Amino acid sequence: MVVSSTNPHNKEIAIRRRISSIFNKREDDFSSLREYNDYLEEVEDMTFNLIDGIDVSAIEEKIAKYQEENAEQIMINRARKAEELAAALAASKGQPALTDNDGATNPNSQAGFGAVPQGQYAPTFGGQPRPTGMAPQPLPLGGGDMLGFAGDDKESKRLREEREARAGGWSTEISRKRAHEEAFGSLWVC
């Protein structure tokens, strides 16, 4: 597959995504760190040559041969990555990871294949989670409404805003000093 794009950055991203979905072995798939590093170096060399258009036909043949010989391992690694993404997503939402023993939905079980709770993300083989259903929208930091917390009076709102500004590194002294420097810097002495 030859990627033609006017933007070289988009071309590189497309090539790297494609190569990483095919050459998806991990360190634990190798008997030594040296073998793994050699594998990574070979993959990066092919990626670099594809991006720069160097010997593309030979590299495409090599990729097709690797894909044919390692199709099962590629699919196993994609499934493992999808399971890890699902587990990480469940952990980020405070839910326990599901296993074969749970009797619940497991990405490897035939009964639960494709079944995802409403509002959750279903991992795809492409590596990016796909939304399923209507997930609740995240609340803004600090909670409450956009104009402030319910029941806040003006003084507590002012104090909270000052603390937030100081936490971000802003202070009235810095603003005042900058305003003076800008004002005096714009004066011309003739």
Rank of each mutant, 00 (worst) to 15 (best):
A64V: 06
I15D: 05
N24E: 08
N70D: 06
T6V: 13
A122P: 07
I22H: 01
K65Y: 10
D45E: 13
T99I: 02
I59N: 00
R166Y: 02
N10W: 05
L98A: 01
S109N: 11
L50S: 05
P129M: 12
Q95N: 14
T124I: 03
D145M: 14
F113N: 12
D145P: 07
R16L: 04
E164L: 11
D102T: 07
V43G: 02
Y121N: 14
N10I: 04
G133V: 02
L33D: 14
P129S: 13
I22W: 01
M75H: 09
L98F: 00
P140E: 11
Q73R: 12
M1Q: 09
L159M: 05
W170R: 12
N7R: 13
N101E: 10
A115P: 00
R130W: 05
T6I: 14
D29R: 13
E61K: 12
K154N: 03
A79C: 06
D152Y: 01
N108I: 07
Y36E: 03
T105P: 00
Q128D: 13
E182C: 06
D29E: 11
F184Q: 11
R176M: 09
N108E: 09
G127C: 09
P136Q: 10
I59E: 00
P107H: 00
F23P: 00
P136G: 09
M1R: 09
I59T: 04
